[in-house]
Design a protein around this nucleic acid. Structure first.
Lengths: 196, 196
DNA sequence: AGACGTATCTTGACAATGTAAAGATTGGAG
DNA sequence: CTCCAATCTTTACATTGTCAAGATACGTCT
């Protein structure tokens, strides 16, 4: 046991990261503030120096995950940006992220903290960059299309809903599927055939 | 205050129904076993005569909701069964159910208790009849198709994932959308164009 | 350098919660 | 009518989120 100094120095960030690790391992349901504090070798009330409530910590954890996720998606964008299979690769990247960390999905989407602005040119507050990126990329693909704005908006929502729904399925615990998702994702994503 | 008899007589069912009411009103996060017991005018440990744990009660509540939902969907099936817009109406019925009761969605799908068998002729245990119904209906529509079994399976999953994803969007708290879902659902569902 | 204020952390406490054990009540079988 | 077993209550305990009061130490100002 290392003798810990009174001041932890980087506790706020540590709480966020250790909290995320615990969610990754055990899921949000078994996460307690006190366990996160304990994982940081800190007393149970220490988090209150940095977060006003458990809810607040959870939100920051979600933001942290969301931003990491956005960076991965941006890598995917720059890699496949101008290739014909871009949308498929992007969709696979989206789903793969959550398949690797199934606990993240319910953590992000069932606390009610994720904000999304579905409007095509919306400027409402939105903290879920992965959707924003998705929206931008689709609109870029549709830049030269003569599709109406309304139809473009519908398509953005439809494509995202589809990928999001597939992600929900692939990350559910008690879903029985005799194939490996990895082998089927390509075909499944292509099943959504839309006119471009 | 009515003098309550020692024996409640129908407590098990009452706990399930009152529990569902509380979820409907406040969401799963604010639900406690003790509040459900209190809503039934019963001591806090009384539920343990009928359920081995809170988790068990939650599961039975989910089953209860799921079965009611299945009945609604079956009504929709018998009403639109042979009409050309059947799939659209079915999808709308699916989404509408959760739009009326937004709290049900996260309650059902983020506890990890919902079992789904995606296999086209699967016989694995599955407690989510709405999906089973969906699968059956789609396969019935494809009965005379020369599509391969594998493709049919993909299509079932794809269609369900899409409707499920749309439902997730429509029931999310912090989603900003300047249209009314009711006005857009038809177009959105049709956005998923697949070859039949 | 030394004192001080403030941010950070600890300790102790409380209410709400899930759950187990033991006792009370009652309906129904014999 | 008696007695058992199912049903409900009471009591108790560990875990949890949160708050208040106190301890510690870092940076700043003189």
């Amino acid at each position: 046991m290392e003798k810990k100094s009174y001041h932890h120095k980087n506790l706020k960030n540590d709480l966020i990261e250790k909290g995320i690790e615990l969610v990754d391992e055990y899921g949000i349901n078994r996460l307690s503030l006190r366990k996160v504090a304990q994982a940081c070798n800190v007393s149970h009330a220490a988090p209150y120096s940095h977060f006003s409530s458990k809810e607040q910590l959870l939100q920051e954890m979600q933001l942290y995950i969301t931003n990491q996720f956005a960076m991965i998606l941006e890598d995917t964008v720059s890699k496949y940006q101008n290739m014909p299979n871009f949308l498929n690769e992007f969709g696979k990247a989206y789903i793969s992220f959550f398949m690797k960390r199934p606990q993240y999905f319910s953590f992000l989407f069932h606390q009610g903290n994720i904000q999304i602005d579905l409007d095509i040119n919306g400027n409402k507050k939105s903290n879920y960059r992965p959707f924003t990126i998705y929206k931008e990329q689709i609109l870029k693909l549709l830049a030269n299309s003569d599709m109406s704005q309304s139809k473009k908006e519908d398509l953005v929502i439809a494509l995202f809903a589809y990928v999001h729904g597939l992600t929900a399925l692939t990350t559910m615990k008690n879903v029985h599927y005799s194939h490996k998702w990895e082998d089927k994702l390509d075909d499944l994503i292509k099943s959504f055939s839309c006119e471009f």
